[in-house]
């Protein structure tokens, strides 16, 4: 159980590092938001699932799962709000032709 938990947390940390690298490397706000969404999806899911397994079955596992569900529901909303605000304020995404 503990081994699986540590493995999941390590996988999650790998994706978090990739997301950080992506945020630095990608050119504009729109493509950077894709790198950030990598944190939400696999990064946070793996880390939280690993923590839930590490806690073992009990009330703390349920609490972590509540956090996980909230994260999955709320993150796309926040990402969409940020990107829509950027688009409406006149920021145009870089496309293939600009490069």
């Amino acid at each position: 159980m503990v081994v699986i938990a540590i493995g999941l947390i390590l996988v999650g940390i790998f994706f978090l590092v990739v997301a950080a690298i992506g945020t630095l490397r990608l050119p504009d706000v729109f493509s950077r938001s894709h790198a950030v969404s990598l944190t939400d999806s696999l990064g946070a899911i793996c880390v939280l699932a690993g923590l839930a397994l590490y806690q073992g079955f009990g009330i703390n596992m349920l609490k972590i799962l509540v956090v996980l569900v909230l994260l999955i529901l709320l993150n796309p909303v926040i990402a969409h709000a940020t990107i829509r605000a950027a688009y409406r304020s006149g920021l145009k995404p870089q496309t293939e032709e600009d490069q």
């Binding site: 894709h34 969404s37 796309p76 990107i83």
Partner: peptide, 22 residues
């Protein structure tokens, strides 16, 4: 939400049922 949740695509704007996706 599904489009935004999938890494690599993000919903920029929804107008009625027309989606603008990056």
């Amino acid at each position: 939400n599904s489009v935004t949740l999938t890494p690599g695509t993000i919903t920029v704007e929804i107008n009625g049922n027309t989606f603008l996706v990056h």
